[in-house]
Amino acid sequence: MTVASESTDAYLTDEIRVLVGQKSEWMRAPHPVEGSEVRRFFHATMELHAKYIDDDWAAQSRYRKRVAPIGFPVHAFRRGPLDTDPLERMDDPDFDGVSRSFRPGLPPVPIPLPGILNGGYEYELYSHVHHGEEMLMRSNYASFVEREGRSGRMVFIAIEDEFRTAEGRPLLHSVNTMILR
């Protein structure tokens, strides 16, 4: 876990530095894995496979039951029924639509840079989640790094996530780099 910069930090204040290493609680996805959301996922990625749709095929496979695509858990921690509407601020012309609380259960990152991009991922994969299973996720801010880019200062935020089923079966581990600019 690091907080680093190539020159004088403009944005990595003490308020930001104390966020490194803070872990969320184990957060529960708002609902068990639903067949419809799995279908919309593989329709959008244009990846049709028997393991997602065919109970008989799945029963004869190593999975025993239908599964969701391996990366599905990353997107399954959605807005809960009582959570704030993310579109409430769309009348603000500078609101980009992305929360600066990057994961459920993590505090917001109060860095006043207006733009955000996804920089990439590192994954270690263990198992697929099944239809109907409940999922848990635990996250932490692994590092903040400030750099000078072509268009000005940028802050790279590394977010580490662990995903497992409610029964404790590991699903995947990821490190996602988000770039504020």
Partner: peptide, 8 residues
């Protein structure tokens, strides 16, 4: 829409 990603 499938992922409920509202990044403009």
């Amino acid at each position: 829409a499938a992922m409920e990603n509202w990044h403009r």
